[in-house]
Design a protein around this nucleic acid. Structure first.
Lengths: 241, 241
DNA sequence: CTGTTAGCGCGTTCAT
DNA sequence: ATGAACGCGCTAACAG
């Protein structure tokens, strides 16, 4: 079933049907009603490829999840992120396409990227980039491809959504200090992650504000897995793994 | 950059370039080489929409995850599934599109389904259906839409991939029985899940084969969450939650 | 092995 | 408010 057929069934031209579908208000109520009936009765749905080709927009949004392939199964963050994005896409009547950097081959990511971006597969992309100097982010920026970061852009050149990692860490540490504690340990994420950098900065800032200097021996590195956290805590407790 | 431009830059016709792109072997090595050079140098990538419109195939595969929205974050099964499918799609040079039944509105799923399937968004779909009489599965079957189930089809009418739930459960219980144990408890999944049905069947079969009749009091129902498992175990242990 | 010719199904000016 | 005509970029016969 095509626009053409709907049009002839409704006794109008293709253009009119197209207008009805796209919510153009330059259609008389009577005609609109008639067209919508035909559409409903025949369960017509516009062909996605044809729409994209003509309109130059795909109505597909991408969610780009890079590198830490392992952690996608261990870290509950990703399922949540995926679900949230999926929900928003559904609400906006967009299709979500998931771009995951699986392969260990570093060029595979680049190829995937080029194919999808240059092939005009997507209207825009949400990229969950947590690492400093992510090459894909740089690429997107260079290509001026519509996108938004989940995790802040250190250079503040792109749109992003993030939490106040620094402030939160600072607040938590300040709270402990205020209660008289002095030996405050920290299990942080990998050092190349922006969130880890920010949290550490907050940790340090809270100490400094209290006129203290944090003890490097109280820092341990986890990797957002249970096991990583366990090991880091063992280290802090003086039981190196 | 379009096929047309690549063609004129390489001094051939559009068709030849198209053949090179699609790996048609009816192209002389010399010409192929020349075309590929132009493609590489100009970083050309074919327009996805145009290809789809002309070929009637989108090179997009769908992963359809229905109902149990909550469990997608608690159950590590889904991240693994998603990652596996993504990997396979990458390897096959296909794009993965994620179709999740978020909304509580039951008609939303149907609309999503119709839009995507009838709009020819996808070439095929992997559906992770675990529930008996899943309406979406029925719909797919009726529409004769290319798809494969993750989880078996009770009616054996569709392609599927699954594990031997029944046999595994039977084996496990038989093993315990062989070691002399007689009061064997079972924490199963929700009763409308095929996997739960199969596992229970195996549990019962093992008992029957040993001339025993399982005690209904030893059955408890979990929901694939830690908390659900905890509660079920409490019940089995005689400490109702 | 290569080029020519038709569409694929729709959005979008233009007229009217 | 509606329709006619064109083009989006590519694949797929069909010729040669």
């Amino acid at each position: 079933m095509t626009l053409e057929e709907v049009a002839s069934l409704a006794g109008v031209s293709r253009s009119t049907v197209s207008r009805v579908i796209n919510g153009d208000h330059r259609v008389s109520p009577a005609v609109r009603e008639r067209v919508q009936d035909v559409i409903r009765v025949h369960n017509y749905h516009p062909n996605a490829a044809a729409r994209s080709l003509a309109s130059r927009r795909t109505r597909i949004l991408g969610l780009l999840i890079p590198q830490p392939v392992g952690s996608i199964v261990s870290d509950p963050f990703f399922p949540r992120l995926i679900q949230g994005v999926a929900e928003a896409c559904n609400a906006a009547d967009r299709t979500l396409s998931l771009l995951m950097d699986t392969s260990a081959d570093p060029t595979a990511a680049a190829r995937l990227y080029r194919r999808v971006v240059r092939g005009r597969h997507l209207d825009g992309v949400v990229i969950s980039s947590s690492v400093v100097d992510d090459p894909t982010v740089a690429q997107l920026k260079e290509d001026r491809f519509p996108c938004v970061l989940v995790g802040r852009d250190p250079r503040q050149e792109m749109s992003f959504v993030d939490v106040y990692d620094r402030e939160a860490a600072q607040g938590a540490v300040a709270h402990l200090l205020a209660h008289g504690y002095r030996r405050i340990g920290m299990i942080n994420g990998p050092a190349n992650m922006i969130a880890a950098i920010d949290r550490h900065a907050g940790y340090v800032a809270a100490h400094q504000k209290a006129g203290l200097r944090p003890d490097p021996a109280l820092m341990a590195e986890g990797d957002f897995t249970r096991r990583g956290g366990y090991r880091a805590m063992q280290t802090l407790l003086g039981h190196p793994p």
